[in-house]
Computed example of a mutant assay.
Amino acid sequence: MRYLTAALALALSLGASWEPRVTPIAGAGRLIAPLGVDPACPAKIEIGMRSEERKPAYATMRVETDPPLTASRSMLTSYLPPGYELGAKLLVAVPPDAKEGTYGLRLRASGRTLEVPVEVMPVDRLDNGGNHALRRPVTASSQHTNANYPPCSVADGDRSSNGWAGGNGWNDATGRAWPDTVAVALGGPRQVSRVELYTLDTERYPAAIYGLRDWDVQAQVGGQWQTVAQVRGNTAGSARSDFAPVTADAVRVVALASNGANDYTRIIEVEVR
């Protein structure tokens, strides 16, 4: 009986130390993390792990970053069916005193490590693809406090509405009181002739019911705001406004009405070209 008990204890200890085979995955081969951005809008990347087992198992992946960078989670743990792939959003914060350079982000699971370089650089060095608003400072007339609707998210490069109320998209705090404004400083004089606005638009929250309907596009020229375009009756998830080129150091959207209940301004992204 004593030997049987010892064998059972050994089997249990071996089982407890068994680690399922999983592969760390990332949504990009590298992460660009600009310096000096609003802390409410850190750099983000999709991470995850894929089970390589033929049976269900609990798996854990550890997340590490080189200091002084910090990550929104230190691990990802989940129950994984065979062959299942789990994904999650990871936020990587860069403190204001961080030095420009390349840092490490490591995803570790089952003895495997996936290295994702994090390139920290000033906003002026970003490849903005012609979008002068990308990662520039944003100010808004108000911010809804019941969820995560930071104004800076309208210039983070993410047009998707999938992160609504979770850090991607701005919602004002003055229900049924208009106008609402959101402005993007362009980092100096820029010649601009187009603004693209992306409003809330998902299967659950379609733009025709929850999106922005009427707004003015204004450019700050010589210290004065001037209206360069107007949009009325919009029901789509995005709208493009083209206008005669002006040299402006800031652009703002003056929201006048929304669809449906005509209650709030909901903007996902503003691009200035």
Rank of each mutant, 00 (worst) to 15 (best):
G15Q: 10
E85C: 08
E53W: 11
V195R: 09
I32Y: 11
A6Y: 13
Y198L: 10
S110C: 04
N259P: 10
D242I: 03
N259Q: 08
D127G: 11
Y264H: 12
S241N: 15
E271L: 13
T113S: 00
Y58S: 12
T202M: 01
G130M: 11
R266P: 01
L80T: 12
Y103V: 04
T23L: 15
Y210C: 05
I209L: 12
G166R: 15
R266H: 06
R2I: 13
L35D: 08
G111L: 12
D38S: 02
I209D: 13
P137A: 00
L107D: 03
A155R: 05
L35R: 10
S238K: 11
A183P: 03
A261Q: 15
R54M: 01
A207Y: 02
G104F: 01
L4G: 10
G101Y: 03
V138D: 01
V116W: 07
A165F: 14
R73M: 15
A109R: 01
D66E: 15
E19H: 06
P117T: 05
D97C: 02
V123Q: 09
L91P: 02
G15Y: 05
L126I: 07
R125D: 13
A255I: 03
A6T: 12
D242L: 09
M61E: 09
I47K: 03
Q230M: 14
D156A: 09
G169V: 11
V228N: 12
D180S: 14
D97P: 05
P179V: 08
E52W: 01
P150I: 00
T102Q: 07
P42A: 02
V228G: 12
P117L: 01
M1L: 14
V116K: 03
D242N: 14
A93V: 00
I45D: 09
S258G: 13
E269I: 05
T227Q: 12
D124G: 11
I47G: 11
P67V: 08
A59E: 04
